[in-house]
Simulated scan of single mutants.
Amino acid sequence: MTIHIGAAVGDIAETVLLPGDPYRAKWAAEAFLRDVTLVNEVRGMLGFTGTWKGHRVTIQGSGMGMPSLSIYVNELIRDYGVRTLIRIGSCGGMQDHVAVRDVILAMTASTVTNPSRSIFKELNFAPCADWSLLQAAAKAAQEKGTTTHVGGIYSSDVFYDERPDLNEQMTRHGILGVEMEAAELYTLAARHGRRALAVLTVSDHLLTGEALPSDQRETSFGEMVEIALSAAFDAAG
């Protein structure tokens, strides 16, 4: 048990999926796992452990933004020995060829700042995904016939962005989408020698203004969860 996770050590699997929304964690656990047990509800940040095709998996909400995710990932790695962490979440599309409902596999995650920034001082550290997970996720997406894009994303530390000039530069430099967590996830994974990946469903588009209605988000996110689960265990060998 930690400050933010009320589970016993053995209650958390070595593979953890990290949606930001705790209720999305509940939905994913009930939809995709068997023998599901609620293992965390501290501060309402729900976590569930079950099995997928015989493999133990935990799905733990991580909250919104890099500071919140950093708390959960630090505790999962440090206190629970988690080896594989996959963010499953939504993002905003930033390229014309990226459509709403497409899936993005984040190869790199650029950011203006994150909770680890003070460690690097003047260095601009380049956080990236684990190659084995990225490769396995791309294979799983191809087998499912999911329209998928692999490349760089932008992890913003604000939701209500007032920097259109920065968004223009992200688009100009080929950034596929924007979200709020992956850069810190990749940085912590690198620091502790863990595997990490962000699998993201495009829920809205910064260029077109198109957005998924709330009642369609869960059904559209199902493919993302299946890709993440397949990648976690295919990459494990």
Score class of each variant (00 low, 15 high):
residue 107 M to R: 15
residue 189 A to R: 01
residue 191 R to G: 01
residue 77 I to K: 05
residue 11 D to H: 04
residue 32 F to D: 09
residue 37 T to S: 14
residue 206 L to C: 07
residue 228 A to G: 03
residue 58 T to I: 10
residue 188 L to Q: 15
residue 49 T to K: 07
residue 127 P to Q: 03
residue 10 G to E: 14
residue 41 E to W: 07
residue 148 T to V: 15
residue 6 G to D: 13
residue 140 A to K: 11
residue 109 A to H: 06
residue 137 A to S: 08
residue 143 E to K: 15
residue 203 S to I: 13
residue 121 K to I: 07
residue 202 V to R: 08
residue 23 Y to H: 14
residue 210 E to H: 09
residue 32 F to A: 08
residue 92 G to K: 09
residue 201 T to P: 05
residue 158 V to A: 15
residue 226 E to K: 15
residue 221 F to Y: 09
residue 143 E to L: 14
residue 152 G to A: 12
residue 22 P to H: 03
residue 155 S to E: 08
residue 165 D to V: 04
residue 162 E to L: 13
residue 73 V to I: 11
residue 237 G to T: 08
residue 44 G to R: 02
residue 145 G to M: 11
residue 5 I to W: 01
residue 165 D to A: 14
residue 212 L to P: 00
residue 36 V to T: 12
residue 113 T to A: 15
residue 102 D to Q: 10
residue 3 I to N: 10
residue 189 A to P: 10
residue 188 L to D: 09
residue 55 H to W: 03
residue 176 L to M: 01
residue 36 V to M: 08
residue 190 A to E: 09
residue 135 Q to A: 03
residue 143 E to H: 12
residue 229 L to S: 03
residue 106 A to S: 15
residue 178 V to Y: 00
residue 101 R to W: 13
residue 28 A to V: 01
residue 202 V to H: 10
residue 161 D to E: 14
residue 13 A to M: 00
residue 188 L to K: 09
residue 157 D to R: 09
residue 163 R to D: 13
residue 31 A to I: 03
residue 86 I to M: 00
residue 33 L to A: 13
residue 59 I to D: 02
residue 105 L to R: 09
residue 88 I to R: 01
residue 27 W to E: 00
residue 82 V to I: 12
residue 175 I to E: 00
residue 134 L to S: 03
residue 49 T to A: 07
residue 25 A to E: 05
residue 59 I to G: 02
residue 195 R to Y: 04
residue 235 A to N: 01
residue 28 A to Q: 12
residue 118 S to M: 11
residue 23 Y to K: 13
residue 91 C to W: 07
residue 217 R to K: 15
residue 181 E to H: 04
residue 42 V to A: 14
residue 94 M to K: 07
residue 100 V to R: 02
residue 121 K to E: 15
residue 77 I to V: 15
residue 51 T to N: 03
residue 109 A to W: 03
residue 61 G to A: 04
residue 166 L to C: 01
residue 207 L to W: 06
residue 110 S to Y: 12
residue 117 R to A: 11
residue 104 I to S: 02
residue 45 M to P: 01
residue 225 V to M: 09
residue 169 Q to D: 02
residue 190 A to D: 11
residue 9 V to Y: 08
residue 157 D to H: 14
residue 179 E to I: 10
residue 82 V to T: 15
residue 115 P to V: 10
residue 28 A to D: 05
residue 234 D to A: 05
residue 140 A to M: 01
residue 69 L to C: 06
residue 175 I to N: 01
residue 20 G to R: 05
residue 203 S to F: 07
residue 192 H to Q: 02
residue 204 D to E: 13
residue 145 G to S: 13
residue 26 K to E: 15
residue 150 V to F: 01
residue 195 R to S: 01
residue 48 F to A: 02
residue 89 G to H: 11
residue 236 A to D: 00
residue 189 A to S: 10
residue 66 M to Q: 08
residue 38 L to E: 14
residue 220 S to N: 14
residue 81 G to Y: 12
residue 10 G to C: 07
residue 183 A to I: 04
residue 81 G to W: 11
residue 60 Q to R: 09
residue 225 V to E: 11
residue 131 W to A: 07
residue 32 F to Y: 12
residue 116 S to H: 00
residue 45 M to C: 00
residue 92 G to Q: 07
residue 78 R to H: 13
residue 32 F to W: 07
residue 168 E to S: 08
residue 101 R to I: 12
residue 183 A to Y: 11
residue 60 Q to T: 12
residue 102 D to E: 07
residue 222 G to Q: 15
residue 111 T to D: 03
residue 200 L to T: 04
residue 148 T to S: 12
residue 127 P to T: 04
residue 218 E to G: 05
residue 218 E to I: 14
residue 89 G to N: 05
residue 233 F to E: 02
